[in-house]
């Protein structure tokens, strides 16, 4: 009963966000129409450009959404925590990249998940890699990047980002270990 009412409220809130989104886009469309009405010589270029970009987007957006929907339903957070929690070394890094890249929602969902992973025993470096992969190399993002930026740009950025995010993960782990150890050392001295 209580869950039902919470769900209902959630649905209402979602609907309100949805309506607001469409209202804002309507306002932007009207504003653009007015601007183009004032500058008729720009109208053709603006509308052709907008139409081309819209067509490029709408050809792949439904497919991208289907891929996102499938992964978010078929791969549960429990599975991610189970597989990533105990793996370490190169396998851990690869799993962190893999699970991070799976299309399963915005970054703020990943923070609590990272905390759960830490509790399950995942290393700091793997958590940082997981978060970075989640933020930066999600499969739907890569698909849209491929469509609009081309394969060279997308592939170069993907490879470079992966290399750097692994280095960053290892570096942050060392840094946090080092500062934690130093603090423990200091507090022990104080206790003496």
């Amino acid at each position: 009963m209580m869950i039902d009412s919470v769900k209902k409220q959630d649905g209402k809130k979602q609907r309100r966000v949805l309506i607001r989104g469409y209202a804002i886009s309507a306002v932007v469309l009207i504003a653009a129409a007015i601007i183009l009405w004032i500058f008729p010589d720009k109208t053709e270029l603006a509308t052709t450009t907008a139409r081309n970009y819209f067509l490029e987007m709408i050809k792949i957006l439904p497919a991208v959404m289907v891929i996102m929907g499938l992964f978010s339903v078929f791969i549960s957070k429990k599975q991610v925590v189970k597989y990533m929690g105990k793996s370490s070394g190169v396998k851990g890094i690869l799993l962190a990249i893999f699970f991070g890249a799976l299309p399963t929602g915005p970054l703020y969902i990943a923070f609590p998940l990272a905390v759960a992973l830490r509790k399950k025993g995942a290393s700091v470096s793997n958590i940082v890699i997981f978060l970075s992969a989640w933020a930066c190399i999600k499969i739907p993002q890569e698909l849209i990047e491929l469509q609009f930026m081309g394969i060279k740009f997308m592939a170069a950025r993907l490879v470079l980002t992966i290399i750097f995010m692994v280095i960053m993960g290892l570096f942050i782990e060392r840094t946090i270990e080092w500062t934690d150890n130093r603090r423990i050392g200091v507090s022990q001295e104080v206790e003496k």
Binding site: I24, S25, V28, T43, L45, T49, A50, Y53, F54, M57
Partner: peptide, 13 residues
């Protein structure tokens, strides 16, 4: 998507 595409149209024009 609508918003960003309208902005792109205006930007390039």
């Amino acid at each position: 998507v609508f918003i960003i595409i309208v902005l792109i149209g205006l930007l390039l024009a």
